[in-house]
């Protein structure tokens, strides 16, 4: 039967494959090559070896400060979204009536695009800040930092909550019943039964939030735009600015993109490792 299928390769596979090659494969290898070059246009690329990469790690005001800012956002953002999402999921799986309405409300921000989210929160946060402190979000990087954290929580809590709800609902009622009969109180049930049994959801959600934080761009652009003085620029924005707002730095921008890719890759590999080791158990 496989032989019969062979001549259908062009119809079934080629359209997707060609689009994939144009959008991803060629740009990927070109980008890899250009990260070792100095260039203004692709035609004028000159091989410069590792100097772009050396620049990336020496320029402490650019990539490294953006990396540090991103890590700070990621740590607080991942923990806060996950804790709050898990807490909401617990409340919404208690079998109370009418909780679907709440689920609907909490999830909705997740459908709104990053640019729009950024402007919605800019209005709200600037309104508060101007009242309380007489300045706006761009005044210092601490305001911008917490602005991004608050926005991120608003956007992601509902999404992670949905995954946690699915995880909690898949726990068999018999186990919970047995725990109750054995006299376990709620905290014990939570610690000894619910959390261990939703560990897969916790891993999934932690890494979803983590990679999401690392790739964040739209929200960052709309809310703070990096202000003041790029102090609130996350990695993706720093790469974009190096490319498009600094002439002669395209090679450095591409090198930053490669380092960024490696970082995201490492995070994904760690996740894969953890997920696989869980599956064996």
């Amino acid at each position: 039967m496989q032989k019969n299928y062979k001549k259908y390769f062009p119809i079934f596979v080629l359209p997707t494959l060609l689009a994939f090659i144009i959008a991803f494969v060629i740009p990927f290898f070109m980008g890899l090559y250009l990260s070792f070059c100095n260039f203004k246009t692709i035609g004028s690329a000159k091989w410069v070896g590792l100097s772009n990469y050396l620049y990336v790690f020496r320029d402490s005001a650019g990539f490294l400060s953006a990396l540090w800012f991103t890590v700070k956002v990621a740590i607080v953002g991942v923990v806060s979204t996950n804790v709050l999402a898990f807490a909401l999921a617990l409340l919404l799986t208690k079998g109370l009536k009418g909780t679907n309405v709440y689920r609907t409300i909490f999830f909705m921000p997740n459908l709104i695009g990053g640019i729009i989210l950024g402007y919605i929160w800019q209005l709200l946060l600037n309104g508060i800040l101007i009242r309380v402190a007489g300045v706006d979000l761009t005044f210092n990087s601490t305001f911008g930092y917490w602005g991004i954290i608050i926005l991120y929580n608003w956007q992601k809590i509902g999404y992670l909550m949905i995954i946690y709800i699915a995880g909690i609902q898949s726990i068999s009622g018999d186990i919970l019943e047995a725990a109750k009969i054995d006299g376990a109180n709620y905290v014990q049930t939570l610690k000894k039964i619910i959390i261990p049994l939703v560990m897969t959801s916790i891993t999934t959600c932690t890494f979803l939030a983590l990679t999401d934080c690392f790739k964040m761009y739209d929200q960052n652009l709309a809310l703070t735009g990096g202000a003041p003085a790029n102090q609130t620029a996350m990695l993706a924005m720093d790469i974009f600015n190096t490319y498009y707002n600094r002439t002669g730095f395209a090679g450095v921008g591409q090198a930053k993109a490669v380092v960024f890719t490696v970082l995201v890759l490492v995070i994904s590999l760690i996740q894969l490792r953890i997920t696989q080791s869980k599956e064996v158990e």
């Binding site: 994939f20 060629i26 740009p27 990927f28 070109m30 974009f240 930053k256 890719t261």
Partner: peptide, 19 residues
Amino acid sequence: FIASMVVPFQMVMYTMTKV
């Protein structure tokens, strides 16, 4: 296809625009 899923958009942003 699988390998490309982890690559962030910024990696191909500039070159893809040219292509």
